[in-house]
Amino acid sequence: MSSETVDRATSGVVTPPQADVLTSDVLRPRRRPRKKGIGRILVMMALMLSTVVFVYPFIWLISASFKPRGEVFDNRLIPHTFTFDNYLNVWQEAPLALWLLNTLLVTVLAALTVTISSAMVAWGFAYFRFPLRGFLFTLVLATMMLPGAVTMVPTYLIWKALGTVDTLVPLWAGNLFGSAFYIFLLRQFFLGLPRELFEAAKIDGANNWAIFWRIALPLCRPAVVVTTLFEFQAAWTDLMRPLIYLQSSDKFTVPRGLKALLDQYGFGGEWHWEIVVTASVITTIPMIILFFVGQRQFVEGIATTGTKG
C-alpha cells in the first residue's frame, strides 16, 4: 500500500465511489409517508362533508324562496317553477322594512353598549390593582352560571316598573351593564398587553381614560370586533325578549315579526310557507354580509383568545 493511499485513508478523504453513494442519497427525492397522505385526504373529506351539512339548509331555504306555494317542500335545490313573486309579495304581506329598521336600531345599540361597557369593566380588572379583585372577578364569572329563566321574571318586573314594556328599550338597555362572557374575553386580551407601555404613557401625562381609550382599546381591536359581531348576531336573532316585551306590530323586530308571520301563514290555515321562507332569506343576508366584512378580525380574535394573558 502506497503512502498516498495511507494518507488518504487516515485523513478521512472520501473516495470517489463513496462520494457517489452519498450524492445519490442526498439528491434522491424523499417519498412522503403513505399514511400521512391518506390522513390528509380523510381530513379534507370530513371538512367537505361538514361544509355540506352546514350549508345545505341555507341553500334549501334560498331555493324554496323562489318556488310557488305548492312546490316549497319538494326538496329540489333547483326550482321546477322559478318565480320572483315571493320577494315582491313579502313586502306587501308584512311591514318587513319597519321590522328591519327596528332590528337594526336594537342591534347597533346593543352591540355598541355591551362592547364599551364590557371593555371598561375588563380594563379595570386587568390594569388596576385593588383589594378583592380576584373575588369580584369570580363573582362576575359566576353570573354566567345563572340560567336565563331565573332572572327573566325579576327583569321583566323592573322594566315594567320603569314603564318601558312594549318599547325597544328593554331589548338593548340591559347591555349598559356589560356581559360576563365579553368581560372575560376582553380581560384576557388586556392582560396580554405590556404594562410598561401604559406606565410610559402615564409618565407622558396621559390619564387613565386616555390610556384605555387611545392605547389599550385599539391594541385589542380583534377582541373588540369579536365582541361586537357576537352581540350583533345575538341581538339580531333574539326572539325571547321581543316575545316578552313587545305587543304592538309596529315595534316588532325581525325574529318577532317572523314568528307573527309563522303564526299567520304557517298555522293559521292559509299555509303561505313561501312568504315565511322568503322573509327568512331577506333577514339572514345582512348577517352573512357582516360576517364577511369582519371575517379577518373575527378569525384573528378567536384564534388568539387563548394565547393572551
Rank of each mutant, 00 (worst) to 15 (best):
L162H: 02
L47R: 02
S50Y: 12
T283G: 08
L136R: 05
I38A: 13
S117P: 02
A303R: 05
A126T: 09
F54C: 14
V299S: 06
E231T: 13
Q233D: 11
S2F: 07
L22V: 15
P170C: 05
F291L: 15
T113I: 02
F252S: 09
M287H: 02
T10Y: 11
V21I: 15
F128Q: 14
W236P: 05
A234F: 03
T103N: 07
T51K: 04
V90W: 06
L132A: 03
A200L: 07
G39C: 07
M152V: 07
R221W: 14
D204K: 05
L219Q: 13
P68Y: 01
D20S: 12
F252L: 05
A161V: 07
V52R: 02
T103K: 01
S50A: 15
L239I: 13
L139Q: 11
F73W: 07
G205N: 04
A46K: 00
Y182R: 12
G70S: 15
P79N: 02
T83F: 11
M152W: 05
A206K: 00
P286G: 00
P57I: 03
L185E: 08
P17S: 05
A260P: 00
N89R: 01
F58D: 00
A111E: 02
R30A: 03
G134T: 03
T305G: 06
L109C: 02
L157H: 03
K259G: 01
L98A: 12
I288C: 09
V106E: 02
I116A: 10
I116N: 00
Y245T: 12
P17Q: 09
